[in-house]
């Protein structure tokens, strides 16, 4: 996908775009600077790639060094490193894209596809399909309830429950809410936004466990001097 973009502009019509590297000639004002930077272009992007690789290495290190990787702190540090790596990858990726070395799938509608309400309404899925989905949801629910019945240990239960619930949510969103039959661009807009934002809320958890350990109402909350 070319996010929020259209090649009409890309090609350098009178749109308010940056000149592509091939057509920088318009920039009379910056001629000396351009000469200076022409050679550094690759170098700088290379530098960016180096930074990105460095951050990925840091992320891997953070993942490898932490004894318990499934601590939110360590997850968070890894995520931050990966994000910084992503930030540094933007510029090289843009360069590749500009030079046509990096292709992204397009989401154009096929000609003549019917629009919203007029004409035959596009509605995919049959009763059979929806019954199958409903059946799937029911089976998952039964598994969840069975877990509760058989008294699985709390943390295993939590993990499985969250996993199953995510599957159920995905089924509902995909089939009942019909997102599976919408265009990919809508899916790629809505889902990542929600996933990112909800994952961000998970950053609260290091503090909840920290709060637990620092509670004043807990016996032995403070190590006394002689205990140390």
């Amino acid at each position: 996908m070319r996010p929020f973009d259209q090649p009409v502009v890309e090609a350098g019509r009178v749109g308010g775009e940056l000149p592509s590297s091939g057509s920088g000639g318009r920039l009379r004002a910056f001629a000396p600077l351009r000469r200076l930077t022409a050679d550094t272009d690759l170098l700088l992007n290379g530098l960016c790639v180096l930074f990105a690789v460095g951050f990925i290495a840091l992320a891997v290190r953070s993942a490898a060094m932490s004894g318990a990787f499934i601590s939110t702190d360590s997850l968070f540090m890894t995520a931050v490193c990966l994000m910084l790596a992503g930030v540094f990858m933007v510029s090289p990726a843009l360069m590749l894209w500009e030079r046509g070395l990096l292709k992204m799938p397009s989401f154009a509608i096929p000609e003549g596809e019917a629009l919203i309400d007029e004409g035959p309404i596009h509605f995919e899925g049959s009763m059979r399909l929806f019954l199958n989905v409903l059946g799937g949801l029911l089976v998952l629910t039964v598994i969840e309830v069975a877990l509760a019945y058989f008294q699985v240990p709390l943390y295993i239960m939590l993990t499985i429950l969250i996993g199953l619930s995510l599957i159920k949510a995905a089924l509902i969103v995909a089939y009942f809410m019909h997102l599976r039959f919408e265009r990919m661009s809508l899916v790629l807009t809505l889902i990542p936004i929600l996933v990112v934002c909800i994952c961000l809320l998970f950053i609260f958890f290091p503090d909840s466990t920290r709060s637990l350990n620092l509670r004043t109402t807990r016996a032995g909350a403070v190590a006394t001097p002689e205990a140390r």
Binding site: Q6, P7, A11, A108, L115, I116, S185, T189
Partner: peptide, 26 residues
């Protein structure tokens, strides 16, 4: 500005982000 660049334009002309239509088709 080049012609091949323009050819690229046309391939996605009907594109949704160009206005006048519903980009997500909803």
């Amino acid at each position: 500005m080049s012609t091949e660049a323009h050819a690229v334009d046309q391939s996605t002309l009907a594109a949704d982000w160009g206005g006048g239509t519903f980009p997500y088709h909803v």
